[in-house]
Amino acid sequence: MKPNFVETTNVQKFYAALKRVNERGAVEACMVVVDGKPGLGKTTTLSRWVAQTGSIYLRAQKGWDYNWLIQELLTELSIDPVTVKGRREKFARVISTLGDRAQSASLMGQTFGLVIDECDLVSNRAEIMEAIRGISDLRFLPTILVGMGTLRDNLRRFPQIESRAPNKVEFLPADLADTNALIESRCEVQVAPDLVDFVCRVSRGFNREILDAIAHIERFGMRIDPGPEGITLADMAGQAIMNDRNTGKPVCIPAVM
């Protein structure tokens, strides 16, 4: 499988939301909420974005409190929390360093932001959410809150935060075009349209399952000499194509379609 990053519709939506943040009218509206079910490519997208932009990535923990959050931020900013005394001084260092980093990034023409993953775990905690809002507001720093189901609902409890996050990106299952783009860009053997369509249907648009299918198709395709169209559904009849995420059992292509 080719190690290519594919800009699916979800990735394009994410980039578009960041672009809207950069071109926003209200300066404080600098939060982006990213949510969606597991396996739709959230981590891959964020991993790529964080790696390419050098942004700050934090993973929320169940027991987070204000001090823990600030200490994690200081560590991510290469400042030893032990060397900075007092809550006020620590907060000031975080703000000033984030400002410096954002300025350096903007000079290089990059977007610099703060990503908080697994934000569902803390999205009902006013102390943490207000701290994130405070940090984001003081430097108008693009802040990306990532979660799964409850993040969007919990944010409604905080109108002052909800109003700062008009840009919401829901990662949705891949459609046929996205499935085709993924297969075309990552699969090392040519795949016929009927097999792409089958993969799209049985994977229910989950990237994880599509990648699993690509691995199966490649393993099969390397052993045979496919026709001009590539590997077809008929070629792979009776073969396992992926594992079902609910049962864990292999999903096989029916011998007779």
Binding site: T43, S47, V50, A51, G54, Y57, D117
Partner: peptide, 11 residues
Amino acid sequence: RQRAWSAMRVR
């Protein structure tokens, strides 16, 4: 390698 280190942290 710096970008890969960031990716390791996320993944």
